[in-house]
């Protein structure tokens, strides 16, 4: 039992540590993550726009 207790506590500690690390990373790099998200959105919209232009070009050719 003692062995299991130690094992679970160490597993728990690892997870808590990981959670804290991830949380700290997110808070420290919040601006960068936000910008990457926004830029990805803009990029996807631009690609959609190009797709639309290509469809229009094809229609014009046909």
């Amino acid at each position: 039992m003692e062995f299991l207790g130690n094992l679970f506590s160490s597993i728990g500690a690892i997870h808590v540590n990981a959670a804290i690390t991830i949380w700290t990373f997110l808070v420290n790099n919040l601006t960068m993550l936000l910008v990457i998200g926004v830029v990805t959105y803009l990029f996807s919209e631009e690609i959609k726009q190009h797709e639309h232009e290509f469809v229009q070009d094809k229609r014009r050719l046909m």
């Binding site: 936000l34 959105y41 631009e46």
Partner: peptide, 24 residues
């Protein structure tokens, strides 16, 4: 400031479909 500019631009892109390409 730069993050604010990106977010403002993205809101305009989302909000004004007629000017999407130009706003980007």
């Amino acid at each position: 400031a730069v993050a604010l500019m990106w977010v403002a631009g993205a809101i305009a892109v989302w909000g004004i479909p007629e000017e999407r390409e130009q706003t980007i």
